[in-house]
């Protein structure tokens, strides 16, 4: 079963890459933007048929490795 996780920076953490991307977009004419925040996306194929078990495994992975909870939040976003 495929489970996806999105890792995003917490609100008060500086995101210089997001800022530069924002500036570039602005320069390209995308002026209607107030902020850009960059994050990470993982697609993990878990050998597990039970969706809640598969999600729980990925949640554990996020807590232990994929995300650093001092600066990042994670969200398990979909299962297939």
């Amino acid at each position: 079963m495929k489970v996806s996780a999105i890792i995003t920076l917490k609100k008060d953490v500086l995101d210089p890459q997001g800022k530069v991307i924002h500036q570039a977009l602005d320069g390209m004419g995308f002026e209607n933007i107030s902020e850009v925040r960059q994050g990470k996306y993982f697609e993990i194929d878990v050998n597990e048929d039970d969706p809640s078990k598969a999600k729980a495994v990925v949640e554990d992975m996020c807590k232990k490795l994929l995300a650093n909870l001092v600066i990042e939040n994670f969200k398990i976003i979909e299962t297939q």
């Binding site: 953490v13 500086l14 210089p16 890459q17 530069v20 650093n68 001092v70 600066i71």
Partner: peptide, 16 residues
């Protein structure tokens, strides 16, 4: 910092 032995994290340098 990733082991948690010392607190905090190290982010990208401010001016990239």
């Amino acid at each position: 910092v990733e082991t948690g032995l010392v607190p905090g994290v190290l982010l990208r340098n401010k001016y990239l």
